Simulated scan of single mutants.
Amino acid sequence: MPLNEQTPVYTAQRIIMEDFGEYNKESAKSKRTSLLKRIPIKRLMDLKVDYAFKQLFENEKNKDITVVFLNAILQRTGRNQIKDISFLNTESSGEYVDDKQSRMDLLVMTKADEQINIEIQFTNQYDMVKRSIYYWAGVYRSPFKKRMTYKELRPVIAINILNFGLFQQTDNFHTTYHLYEDNEKFKLTDVMEFHFIEMAKLIRDWKNDELDPWNNVLARWLMLLGMVDHRNDEVYNDIYLELEEIAMKDESLRNAFQTWEELSMTQEQYLAYESRLKRIIDEEAAQREKELQIQEAKEEAQEEIRKAREAVEKAKQEAKHKAKQEGKKEGKKEGKKEGENSAKEAIARKLLAKDMRIETVVETTGLPKDKVIEMYRKMQ
C-alpha cells in the first residue's frame, strides 16, 4: 500500500534488517553448526510467555534484535525502516498495580517519535480488541502535557501477539487495522495502527508447508516464538532445524538464539520464568473451573426450570379444575402464580447455595432483588 504524506521517515545510524532472498539451503546444511551449545531445545523458555518475551526483546544489549523484529512486522503496512529505538516505562500509572492488565509487555519509542506497544498474550482471558484499544488510548494521551497542542501527539502502533485464535473471519495469521472512510476507503489519520498476530494460525500454516522463512523475515521470527510450546508440552524440532540453517546467514537471528540460550541457562531467570508460567496456567485453570461451574449451574437451573414448568402446568390444571368447581376465574390465575413463584424460589435457593452472585440469581429466576437478598440472609 502506498505511503501517504503523513507517513513518518525514520532516521538513525544504520539499518538493521536482513532479508537475503533465495538462499542456497544445501550450502547452509554443509556449513551448519549447532546453535544450542549447552542445553536441549525443550529447556528453552517459551517466548510466548510475557516474562521470557520481555527478557529477550526488552534488553538494551539486544536492541538490534528488537529493531529487526519490529521492522519485520511493520513492513506489512508500508512504513519506513526503523533505525533505532528507546525503551519506555511499561507501568500504567493510576491503574491496579498488582494487576497484569495494568502493565504493558513492551513499549518503545522510535527515532521518528512513534510509540510502539507490543502485547503478547499466552491465554485468551480478555476481550483482546477492546483491551488493545484501551492500551492504545493510554499510550496515545500519556505524553500530553499542559500547554501542548494536539498536533504534538504522535502515532501509536499496537502489536498484539496471541497464543490463540481470535478472528473467525480470516485465515491470515497477521491482520492490520486503521481508521478509514466507509465508502471511499481513504485513511482518516496515521496516528492509529493495530496489528494482530495469531500464533495458532502461524503454526497451522507451517504444518501445511505454507510458510517460507528463508525469504520471509517475519515468518522466521514468529516461528522462533512458536518453536517451544510449554503450555502443551510440545517442542517443534523441525522448526529449530530450519531456523538453525537460516541463522547461519542471519546474524540477528543467530544472536537471538544465543541470548535465548543464555537466559534459559540462568537459574534466577529460569525460576522467575517458571513462576510466571505456573501463574498463567493456574489462572487459566481457575478460569476454566469457573466456566465449568457456571455451566453446571446453568444445567441444574435448566433442570429446575423444567421441573418448575411441570409444577406450573400441574398447578394450572389444579387451578382450572378448582375454578371449574367453584366457578371462579381467580383460582386459575392464583394457582399459576403460586406455582411459578414456588419454582423460582426453589431455583434461587439452589443457585445461592452454589455461591452464585445475587445479580445472577435475579437475572436467572426473574425474582425481585430484595426477595433474593431476603432468601440469602435467611440461608446465612
Rank of each mutant, 00 (worst) to 15 (best):
Q302H: 12
K130W: 09
E268C: 05
V372Q: 01
R32I: 07
E251N: 12
G327V: 04
Q55F: 04
I116A: 06
R306H: 06
V235A: 14
E283R: 14
L162K: 05
L70D: 04
W136D: 10
D105L: 03
M17V: 14
E303A: 11
N62A: 15
K332N: 02
T364I: 08
L222Q: 04
Y273T: 09
I161W: 01
F196Q: 02
K378G: 06
K336N: 01
M223I: 08
N163H: 10
F20H: 11
E5Q: 08
R79A: 10
V191S: 13
F186M: 14
I41F: 06
T90D: 13
M227T: 01
D171T: 13
E274I: 09
R32Q: 08
V362C: 01
D370Y: 07
R43M: 07
E284W: 08
I120P: 02
L162H: 03
E289V: 09
G21C: 06
N117Y: 03
N183A: 15
L56Q: 01
K333I: 05
N232K: 04
Q267M: 13
P143C: 11
G226Y: 00
E340K: 14
Q293L: 11
V191Q: 09
L44C: 06
L271M: 11
V312C: 07
E284N: 10
E119V: 00
P40K: 07
T123K: 09
E338R: 07
G366F: 01
R76S: 13
F69R: 07
K249T: 14
A112S: 14
T33G: 08
Y273A: 06
D205K: 10
D212K: 06
R131K: 08
M199Y: 00
R279H: 11
D233L: 03
P368Y: 06
Q380R: 14
K111T: 15
M192W: 03
E245N: 12
F194G: 03
N237I: 11
K320E: 11
E330F: 03
N216R: 11
R32W: 05
D98S: 06
F87D: 10
Q169E: 15
S86N: 11
K54I: 01
T66I: 03
L351Y: 06
F57M: 15
T175L: 01
A343V: 01
A311R: 14
E251K: 13
K378H: 14
A137W: 02
E242L: 04
E60I: 06
T11N: 14
E22M: 05
D127M: 05
Q81G: 06
A12E: 12
E268M: 07
N160Q: 13
K369M: 15
K54P: 00
E330G: 08
I373W: 02
M223H: 02
I85W: 02
E291C: 12
Y270R: 10
K187Y: 04
D98Q: 07
D99H: 05
A52P: 03
L202E: 08
K63E: 05
R349G: 00
Q121N: 03
K146M: 13
K54R: 13
I294R: 15
E274R: 10
L222R: 03
K54S: 09
L224H: 07
T170Q: 02
K83Y: 07
Q287M: 15
L222P: 01
W214D: 05
L263M: 06
M248P: 00
T66G: 00
Q325D: 12
K31L: 12
I16Y: 13
